[in-house]
Design a protein around this nucleic acid. Structure first.
Lengths: 218, 218
DNA sequence: TCAAAAGTGTTGCATTTACACCCATGA
DNA sequence: TCATGGGTGTAAATGCAACACTTTTGA
């Protein structure tokens, strides 16, 4: 019987919070990489699919299920983990921060959201993973509806636009943005509006279908 | 120590041959799945990256290196292989058939090119892999230059167009195709032309850079 | 001179970009 | 009445799709 590498998953959990794109990191307990941060993850037991393992990891740290979760890439450099050859299947999840109840997994010393703009020192090859994940997120934002998973059920168009601007890192034209979003037909107007502050109340919208789809197909 | 699944690679090797998109399949030796076909692949030994394993598999069956090779997806269903839990990292390779010297790997009974239009019964979850690979190939053909890996160094625009038509499965307009290709600036005219048959000779072109790149960036 | 593939431009349509003012509200 | 964010339309430019004839060659 040939000896093959071990299999792990890492889950890159994005949210938009405090006007920034943030990622959930855990801090490992000594003696492993203390002072470094890493994505939630771990070895995959035989009999469990990597999707299941990623879903489980996501649930154990945030308490949420049923959010957008996508396989990103498989990282397999034999030296990526100094303790032995571990092939890691990376996943990306998008969560709405208001639904989160963070919990520190048993094997971790700490957990928290950190902005991708100023990432901390990362363990293993997690810096590569993060770069790739951000790139993929920006790319898919443009031609899918996955942003639904970052927002509450009801939201204003300005909130939606802010999420796009924060992730893409550039300002968008308000009129063109609204025209485009509404023309895609994936949003539904709700009868309600929000009144906050001394100005005109904003209409609330929601996604017709809160599931991933490619925009041309809508 | 936790027991994790074994790690394998499968390589989906595409070529364009006989006016069809074809894939390289091997037939397993008895007692395993005889009568079924599968992609070249196998377990990844500890210490080898999956890229290396895929490159090696490609070389062992076709004798080529330095062609387009891309990670496709990781398949991890615990039941995908009835003999035990094997996570397979699938790769896609694109080769130019004229450069190929097929060899039957020791553990296989047979090897050959088969058209994707009429795929044979496939072992494991290889039918799923194939569908996904075709989809990805079509998609990437539209916004990258990866087609370079399917053609000889020098080719005519008609040959290039045929490759696109065969993979996409629909006819393309000759004038629009040429306009588009030439405007992207990724082709170089060569001084030579080919004369075959009783008609005007065709100019030969080649790719400026025979390496994968996204078309907007060119 | 004929057959066969190579090669070449223009027009309409759809999509994207740029851009500035009025509206509704609470303080 | 003023400050604040919500909401709206038009014109130019760009990109894409449709479409037919002339050129060069060898037989």
């Amino acid at each position: 019987m040939m000896i093959t590498p071990k299999v792990a998953v890492d889950v890159i959990i994005f949210t938009v919070r405090n006007e920034a794109l943030q990622v959930l990191f855990v801090q490992l307990k000594p003696p492993l990489h203390t002072e470094m941060w890493a994505f939630p993850g771990g070895l995959v037991p035989s009999g469990e699919s990597t999707e299941e393992a990623a879903t489980r990891c996501l649930f154990e740290t945030t308490g949420v299920k049923d959010v957008y979760l996508e396989q990103l890439y498989t990282f397999s450099n034999p030296h990526r983990d100094p303790h032995g050859h571990v092939v890691s299947v990376a996943y990306v999840a998008l969560v709405n921060r208001t639904r989160i109840n963070l919990r520190v997994p048993g094997k971790c010393a700490n957990i928290g959201w950190l902005s991708v703009a100023t990432p901390p020192p990362l363990a293993y090859d997690h810096a590569d993973m993060l770069q790739y994940a951000i790139q993929r997120l920006r790319w898919k934002l443009e031609y899918t509806n996955i942003v639904y998973s970052l927002l509450p059920r009801d939201f204003t168009l300005t909130e939606l636009q802010r999420v796009y601007e924060i992730i893409l890192g550039r300002p968008l034209d308000k009129r063109n943005f609204r025209k485009k979003m509404l023309s895609l037909g994936m949003l539904q107007v709700t009868p309600r509006a929000v009144k906050v502050g001394a100005h005109r109340p904003a209409r609330l919208y929601r996604f017709r279908r809160r599931m991933p789809m490619i925009i041309e197909v809508l």
